[in-house]
């Protein structure tokens, strides 16, 4: 039983990180209809900036958090303004290719700006081990699970009750009608990129706290993307929960079926789920009137 509980806790912790990054994918898709293949790289850049702040400015957790969030907002806005906005109205394929190109550039930037060595993000908290009964858990792992749950609630409330959230849903549903109603689609897009960058960046910072920073960190995006597909590409909350599901499935498969199955299990689950619900567990079915 203890073995199972340990697998579940570890699965939830890594799944929460996948979930945060997956929510980043979903926020952009929901608002712009675009899959951002540079999501993993944006996550990595934010984590590296957090590390730079912690080693050069201050190791205080609040300074690092505020600096990282601000940096993530700027990163999202800059990418939207300089790279994505000129692509408005262009074919989706071309726009997606631009995000792939952006991913390669951001990945290479790590070596140019920082280096290829692994680094530890040390802000005084998150690395300690607490024991829940006889099970050891890092405080950073508990924090990321709690953070995901808080963000899920906050985002649900944001889309449900705030003016901006409703505007984003309106643009996602029908951008032309939203425009006629006085909603600026470009502003909504900018906001979506900034929000996506922050949410995924939080996942990246937690990953760096619990594990380490390295130029291989962009691969988190490859693990989080299936979580988005599983939860529903247009379902922000569903993507977060999809991350948890992927994390738990991976760990249970790794723990009971062997190490080799760990990386396969999440994708196997997606295949099965998509056969039954092609739009993901929480995604909305597209209905077109003919």
């Amino acid at each position: 039983m203890q073995y199972l509980v340990q697998l579940l806790i570890s699965g939830l912790a890594i799944g929460a990180i996948y979930g945060l990054i997956a929510m980043g994918f979903a926020v952009i898709y929901k608002s712009t209809g675009l899959v951002n293949f540079a999501q993993g790289e944006m996550t990595m850049i934010t984590a590296y900036i957090a590390w730079t702040i912690s080693t050069t400015v201050s190791g205080n957790v609040f300074v690092v958090a505020a600096g990282a969030i601000l940096a993530a907002v700027l990163l999202g806005l800059i990418i939207e303004r300089l790279v994505m906005r000129p692509m408005l109205g262009e074919p989706v394929f071309a726009t997606v290719m631009v995000t792939i190109g952006l991913a390669v550039i951001l990945r290479s930037a790590i070596n140019f700006i920082w280096d290829a060595y692994p680094h530890g993000l040390d802000i005084g908290i998150g690395r300690g081990i607490v024991h829940l009964g006889s099970i050891g858990v890092r405080t950073g792992q508990i924090a990321v699970i709690v953070t995901l749950l808080l963000l899920l609630t906050a985002i649900w409330a944001f889309f449900r009750y705030s003016k901006v959230g409703v505007a984003m849903r309106a643009v996602a549903a029908d951008d032309r009608t939203a425009l006629l109603m006085g909603i600026s689609a470009t502003r909504v897009h900018a906001l979506a990129w900034a929000a996506s960058s922050v949410i995924a960046g939080i996942g990246g910072v937690f990953f760096a706290l619990s594990y380490d920073l390295s130029p291989a960190m962009f691969q988190l995006g490859l693990k989080a993307f299936p979580a988005t597909i599983l939860g529903g590409l247009d379902a922000v909350l569903g993507s977060g929960l999809g991350g948890l599901l992927i994390g738990i499935t991976e760990n249970l498969a790794g723990g009971y079926l062997g190490s080799g199955m760990k990386e396969v299990a999440g994708f196997a689950m997606i295949i099965v789920v998509l056969m039954v619900r092609p739009f993901g567990i929480f995604g909305e079915r597209d209905i077109e009137r003919v």
Binding site: G11, I14, Q219, L220, N251, A253, S259, G260, K262
Partner: peptide, 13 residues
């Protein structure tokens, strides 16, 4: 055990 290249979480292993 045998892990897939790129794996970052080794909790179950």
């Amino acid at each position: 055990g045998n892990y897939k290249k790129g794996q970052q979480d080794f909790s179950s292993d």
